[in-house]
Structure formats: structure tokens, C-alpha cells
């Protein structure tokens, strides 16, 4: 395991554990998701750089575009949740349990 590999793996795992265990605000969940996507961006771009593969160099940009779409969808849902539930606390998302 190279240092770069360790770095992006631990970043991703930190983001994932933050998403899984820190459950107070929807915004922090979205930020954790964004951190995970950015660690994947670093992983893809370092992979393309290390192998000098020109055909793969578009992949990090594609990933970034998709993660931006995902983040904007998440923010739209944040706004929708704030309008319907009055808060962005994940605790208040309890209408569907039983």
C-alpha cells in the first residue's frame, strides 16, 4: 500500500464513518458525502498521473461533474426538508417509521 493509497483510503473511510455515525444535521451528512467524493477524485487523478494514461485523464473530471450534480441534488433536498420539516436535523425525519 503506497502512501497515496493509504491517504485517500483513510480519507474515504473518515467520510464514510462520519456519514454513518454523526447523525445530527443533514448538512453535515452532505459534507461527509462530498468529502468521500473528493477523496475518490484524488484517487482517480493520482491513478491517471501515476500510470501516465492520457485516455483515463478525463475520468476525474467526469467524477467531479457527477459529484457536483449529486451535491446540488442533496442541497435541493436540504432546502425541501427545511421547508417541510422546519429544520435540517435528521432526528426530525421520523414520519415514516413504525
Amino acid at each position: 500500500m503506497t502512501p497515496a493509497h493509504f491517504a485517500f483510503s483513510s480519507t474515504f473511510m473518515l467520510g464514510l464513518s462520519g456519514l454513518a455515525f454523526y447523525r445530527t444535521h443533514l448538512l453535515s451528512a452532505l459534507i461527509c458525502l462530498e468529502g468521500m467524493m473528493l477523496s475518490l477524485f484524488i484517487a482517480l487523478s493520482l491513478w491517471a498521473l501515476q500510470l501516465d494514461s492520457t485516455s483515463f485523464s478525463a475520468a476525474p473530471m467526469l467524477l467531479l461533474a457527477f459529484s457536483a450534480c449529486e451535491a446540488s441534488a442533496g442541497l435541493a433536498l436540504l432546502v425541501a426538508t427545511a421547508r417541510t420539516h422546519g429544520t435540517d436535523r435528521l432526528q426530525s425525519l421520523n414520519l415514516l417509521q413504525c
Partner: peptide, 22 residues
């Protein structure tokens, strides 16, 4: 635009985005 639909969409988004990232 009722609260249940928004909540369902939020939960679906969080799980699916996490799964896709994994």
C-alpha cells in the same frame, strides 16, 4: 410536495449516494 415524500427522497438520496460511493 408533502413532508413524507421529501423525507423518503432524502433517505433514498443518502443511502444511494453512499452505496454508489462505496
Amino acid at each position: 410536495h408533502h413532508p413524507r415524500a421529501v423525507e423518503a427522497a432524502t433517505k433514498y438520496f443518502l443511502t444511494q449516494a453512499t452505496a454508489a460511493a462505496m
